[in-house]
Amino acid sequence: MTQFSLNGHTTSVDAPPMTRLIDVLREQLRLTGTKEGCGEGECGACTVLIDGLPVNACMIPVVQAEGTQILTVEGLAEDERLHPIQTAFINYGAAQCGICTPGFVVAAKALLDAQPNPSRTEVREALAGNLCRCTGYQKIIDAVVEALGGQP
């Protein structure tokens, strides 16, 4: 058994140690907000936070999740209240097809937690591990830079 905190809830899973974290999340726990775009750590659609740091869930063997705190996109909103980053993504048109959106939103959350007032260049660097094919990134950068203003 591997035990970790998932979106604030203690969670135990029974999976071979090298099972990819993304498969545990999507198939065992049915949290399908974490997406798979490449399976090799290139597109960032499977970004989750482990102990506050963004990582690719397709590259993490579940054994390394033991004892960690994991945040997925499902853990961002508090009940019906969206996280300010999520609201900004909607308002700025930062989500189009939406398949990369959970990964971007989670990566942006880590950035804003670490650096509440990032420059556009810092935002670009922090999101360089997330590929988007729809937006040209402009609206995503706008949303993340502006999300701070929306924070209480």
Partner: peptide, 9 residues
């Protein structure tokens, strides 16, 4: 090296 997600791991 890679980007943030890779550098964290």
């Amino acid at each position: 090296v890679g980007a943030q997600q890779i550098q964290n791991r």
